[in-house]
Nucleic acid binder design. Structure first.
Length: 114
DNA sequence: CGATTGACGTACG
DNA sequence: TCGTACGCCAATC
């Protein structure tokens, strides 16, 4: 099985792997960075297939625009996502990232500016 | 082959 | 400020 089934998926995985520990980003931010701002759903779909991709993708660092762990239900077990985030120093409360604005990592900003 | 769903986001009222 | 509608594109029913 080729992991490069689609170039778009591969680009998403590449950006997600660039997310530093203790930081998170949103599906829309990645989609916009790739030039497909209106295809945020495809980013989420790519994450759904990321479990079979190598090297592994830190999908737990990707949340929706409000910092909610919308994809936690897709992990095994679901609470694993929150555990990983807390392990990196990110506080999570009620499935929502605390101080999300401070830990948010925007690829368009971080990778474009020095 | 047509309709529905989905780890989202923006627009509109 | 909050709730609803729509667009995106691929996979599934």
């Amino acid at each position: 099985m080729e992991n490069g089934g689609s170039v778009f998926f591969d680009m998403v995985y590449d950006v997600v792997r660039l997310i530093p520990p203790g930081r998170v980003t949103s599906y829309g931010a990645i989609a916009r960075y790739l030039g497909t701002a209106r295809s945020a759903r495809m980013v989420g779909w790519a994450m759904n297939a990321s479990h079979s991709v190598q090297p592994p993708v830190p999908a737990h660092r990707v949340v929706n625009r409000i910092g909610l762990l919308s994809g936690k239900a897709h992990f095994h077990p679901p609470e694993h996502m929150q555990i990983m985030l807390e392990s990196e120093g990110i506080s999570v409360r009620n499935d929502q990232i605390v101080n999300f604005d401070a830990v948010f990592w925007d690829p368009q900003k971080e990778l474009s500016l020095d």
